[in-house]
Design a protein around this nucleic acid. Structure first.
Lengths: 211, 211
DNA sequence: CTAACGATTGTCCAATCGGTCAAAATTTGC
DNA sequence: GCAAATTTTGACCGATTGGACAATCGTTAG
């Protein structure tokens, strides 16, 4: 077969492809693309290498498919940042959504981080296109909040970077966070603590009124 | 030869080893360990592969040496965080030192990030040992500042994480930052803007007094 | 039952990569 | 200037890896 239209895929094909992508996400996110072997992915998916290559034309095909899927979900939290609500509430919600993503989808975060570290060879068009456009849109919103005196005057771009950095840190640098917090403090409540700290930090850092 | 004591190395050996480490840092930091080949490093260092392997026993040896050197410089900025000065000034200085490191040593930052993404297979002892110890020491300092009412009551661990995340972000996610800022705003002043924003954010976020 | 189609695997191959080695080229010590 | 030591290289090797392929197994429709 050459290229199966998604429409005409067997139920088994759909399921197996899902299974493979799931396994590949595990492997790619921690070992990187070049550090992963098709055999490792196949074993993680519980099938033989030739069988895996029956569902995906190549290792690269799997990787590309994963990145493609990542695009959609990656911008979702920022998309929800809305002009209508109270700025502080909106930003607080954005931080919370991002922290939840770091907690619930750490592998996707690491996959993205790997791609960025390598200079975004596959995602550059996405960064310069869809992502930049969305950021620009939200920058306008934030700038509006500043001009109406609802939040402190800060650089909107760097505000967004700071939220990205602090939240994704808990997925990408999970080992470091765990190691530094120690065995006892490394329970799953570290995301709760992080959320509390970050909301606090940003709310205080952006407030225009005194407490 | 088996293992040359550092003491008895020729001048040429010292220089060539430096040259190789410099080239390897370039390659490893963007392509990761598995994604890099000895040939690439050798070419970047302007020598043949066997010649490179005359100065380092193995690819792994180069990598380990780079990570080893990284340890020293990585904790330096935090070490300087001192108990004596004004808390806000101290923290502001720490942020500035970290941003300068991201600007001046982005390859080292990415090398570290790669190691973390893969679960710190080589640096785990360092994380749990030296790094955790230093953090714990500084946590005590920060806690002291909080108890004496000099900064707002926040979780010291997560404060440190936030400073790490926001500053290193400009090295590790440089491509993304550039892409989102656009060609015009991506001049080298982005580090200045970032520093200004971050100092502002943290100072406001930690202040106990009203402005 | 059986023919057709989809799924699975064992085997193999070419390319890449880390590393070796002996020989050649160069530098150094005297 | 020359011998010893150091540096550099071309050729080579074994192991790994991505992928191809033909053969086999399983399933399903008639």
């Amino acid at each position: 077969m050459d290229e199966i239209p998604t429409r005409s895929r067997t139920r088994i094909q759909q399921e197996k492809r899902e299974l493979i992508l799931e396994a590949a996400l595990d492997v790619f996110s921690t070992k990187g693309f070049r550090g992963s072997t098709v055999d490792q992915i196949a074993e993680a998916a519980g099938m033989s290498k030739p069988n895996l290559l029956y569902y995906f034309r190549s290792k690269d095909d799997i990787h590309t498919t994963l990145l493609q899927r990542l695009l959609d979900m990656w911008l979702a939290p920022l998309r929800e940042l809305d002009d209508v609500g109270d700025p502080i509430t909106e930003l607080r919600g954005y931080i919370r959504r991002k922290i939840e993503m770091a907690r619930d989808y750490p592998r996707e975060s690491r996959l993205f981080a790997n791609e960025m570290l390598q200079g975004a060879p596959h995602m550059m068009p996405f960064l310069q296109g869809e992502m930049k456009a969305l950021v620009e849109e939200k920058v306008v919103v934030i700038r509006g909040w500043i001009e109406s005196g609802k939040i402190a005057p800060v650089d909107p771009h760097h505000l967004i970077f700071a939220i990205w950095a602090t939240t994704q840190h808990y997925a990408d640098f999970d080992v470091q966070v765990r190691a530094v917090l120690g065995a006892d403090r490394s329970g799953e409540n570290r995301f709760e603590d992080a959320a509390r700290f970050l909301e606090n930090l940003f709310v205080r850092g952006l407030a225009t009124h005194n407490k």
